[in-house]
Nucleic acid binder design. Structure first.
Lengths: 230, 230
DNA sequence: CGTCATTTTGAAGACTGTCAACGCGCGTGG
DNA sequence: CCACGCGCGTTGACAGTCTTCAAAATGACG
């Protein structure tokens, strides 16, 4: 990964981080937008690893195209997917030294890799950057805490419904959208088996709560009914 | 809560934050120790609320004595306990404006309440403080991510075992320790029912993996066997 | 058109939840 | 001093959900 990053380093942008700099009359850029000026574009093939669990967290990534999953593997092969990242999302930011999850491309993907040292160096002198890094970790925490409730206290139907609504709300259309990930990925994200996920999809379709245009393309037909536990 | 905090404000310490100040020859104090110089001591009775879900997060807390649980309530009464905090632990730190969980004293407790604005103001000029705040949130994130795996991919036995080992490792003795929380609290922490928690305790005791001195006092007899799934 | 990965469906069984009753410890009050 | 009530914990029987194991269907791709 890193070797490759250096290989394509001719793509490196040279602009410096400048949140309030808008001398060119462009609309002011937020922190996340200005990240794009510090990174290296990196194509990643489907199922290729971007970083591994417990590896040094030297880079932070932003999805430009495609999609990414993070996961942890247990000794006996059980897998927990931590999150899915879609274009625009940032992942791989750690306050500590190492990554706690692995990250892989779900489909053919392009990510922007930003040196973490660049960010932490900026944070040394710029309190706005420091706060922004903190906020990113806090947002991740919020999401994981919601996921915790889902895993601890919800039925299969509720988990799948929550997942579909989350994906819908992250899509353009908010009603009809593609699922880049497999049923196995969804199962490992929701703490279910692939069979239960599939059966739940089928049951929702029979009840006209969703429509499966293809197995990877969903349309929500009744959000309210999706929310109800059965 | 806040009214009471003001009521006891005569207990306020006046020392300023000074991580590297050790003019008195004392060993250097870490960030968390110096927090104690900025807070107000606050006694909280058993089951009393310290803050509520979605309330403004104006204070950060440190447990001085007793124990605290955080939790979220779902509309239908289901409850997810987020974490337990023991003496020395810090809780209630948010990057955003509001608390995402409620916090209550499990037993009669004394906490130290520190104004969040004090910390964020310090972080404006001191990158060390800013980094420390970020690290605290990151540690919380690590714990919740582990909890997520537990809730998503583990059996009742594994959840209870993991909980007991966590509690043991946080205790002085690391073998024999008190459980300040009820079976219901444990169940809501592990995503189980109170009956399943109780049965699992009993089963572990029959297998001589633990010993229940009282229902709230546990001794680990075989850590290795606890780790195994059945 | 055949192959392979992925998804769906079916049947049986395990685990945990639900409902109910009982036991235990402790404080209060007779 | 003992009886009672109450909160909390334990145990039992049964039901339901989800998993497991197995096989068929679907779809992408050469």
């Amino acid at each position: 990964m890193l070797a490759y990053a250096q290989h394509v380093s001719e793509e490196r942008y040279t602009a410096r981080f400048a949140p309030a700099a808008k001398a060119d009359g462009q609309p002011e850029r937020g922190f996340e937008s200005s990240l794009e000026l510090m990174g290296i574009k990196l194509p990643v093939a489907r199922n290729e690893e971007i970083y591994g669990q417990d590896e040094p967290a030297d880079y932070v990534y932003k999805v430009l195209k495609g999609s990414v999953r993070t996961h942890k593997l247990l000794d006996d092969g059980r897998r927990q997917v931590g999150a899915f990242y879609l274009p625009g999302d940032i992942f791989g930011l750690e306050a500590g030294l190492n990554h706690r999850f692995s990250a892989e491309a779900i489909s053919d993907t392009v990510v922007l890799a930003i040196k973490r040292s660049t960010l932490t160096a900026l944070a040394q002198t710029d309190a706005v950057v420091a706060r922004e890094l903190w906020l990113m970790t806090a947002r991740e925490l919020d999401h994981v805490q919601d996921q915790m409730i889902l895993l601890g206290r919800s039925s299969a139907k509720e988990r799948v419904a929550s997942f579909l609504i989350e994906m819908a709300d992250r899509s353009k259309d908010r009603t009809e959208f593609d699922l880049p990930m497999s049923r196995q990925d969804i199962a490992d994200y929701l703490g279910l088996t692939i069979e239960t996920v599939s059966r739940t999809f089928s049951s929702m379709e029979r009840k006209a709560q969703i429509e499966l245009l293809t197995s990877r393309k969903v349309r929500l037909r009744n959000r309210a009914a999706l929310r109800c536990p059965h």
